[in-house]
Nucleic acid binder design. Sequence first.
DNA 1: CGTAATATTGCAACATTATTGCAATAACAC
DNA 2: GTGTTATTGCAATAATGTTGCAATATTACG
Lengths: 143, 143
Amino acid sequence: MLQYYVFLPNRKAPKVATERRNTKQKQGVIDVLKEHKEALSADEVLDKLDLKVNRVTVYRILERFEQEGIAHRVVGLEGKSYYALCSDACDSGHHHDRHAHFQCKSCKSLRCVDAEVIRPKLDNVKIESVSVLLTGLCESCSA
Amino acid sequence: MLQYYVFLPNRKAPKVATERRNTKQKQGVIDVLKEHKEALSADEVLDKLDLKVNRVTVYRILERFEQEGIAHRVVGLEGKSYYALCSDACDSGHHHDRHAHFQCKSCKSLRCVDAEVIRPKLDNVKIESVSVLLTGLCESCSA
DNA sequence: CGTAATATTGCAACATTATTGCAATAACAC
DNA sequence: GTGTTATTGCAATAATGTTGCAATATTACG
């Protein structure tokens, strides 16, 4: 079982308190994301949590995970945010700013796609991230 | 000045009334989109309209334009929808389901990028559209 | 041109997703 | 254990988009 604290960076002990705390809410969200290969929306995470957690807290945790590089965020066709744990490839600095995803037009399920995403060049602008969203009907919905 | 009615297909006169009507609201939205090279959100279109048009009407017109292939929709990082008129390349059937866009992380401005977008293959799934969203800081915001 | 049919609009209310302020709680360093 | 403060929960609010329905305006056609 993936534990949240493995993500805590090694740092010298602060005088008073830690900057990040390992809470059961965070651990719960990690576990849910870990158990599902699909990217999940805040509501989906909330549904799948055993623990009773406030909706706002889930939003905050997911946002935080994205900032810390633990998870990445994808925006679906409906404008909703979906989150998935970053893969090992992510951590290697290879994938972390270049993701490809597939979303079903019908059921809205969204999953990561292991694709080679190149970073194109643009005049006058430095591109920081590249997001590719493929759409169509998933296996279940096209059957 | 691009006129909406140019998009009306040639069809035999229906018994009673047309299926599409050319209204000043639609024409206004067309004009606004035409005058701006950036993709615009519903609110931005509303702001730039000379004519006083209801918010809901703008939403409906933009949605309609997308369905009719007059405009295409892009979802920004914040989950908002942006619309831009389809280019000629679009109509040729080359670009219409494969768009690339750049959005500024700071000012959220979003524009089309003339890039070659390939349609990748995925097992068990038919990909209907490919959307590439590049992000970074635009010229103005990075200065 | 006038008229009838109906596509379209405007309005009000509602839905969904996400954010903010703040007091209460709980995790961590010591 | 205790103090500090990161984190949570709650309530309220914001932002974006949607729905139902009556009023309006466009179009085909005589």
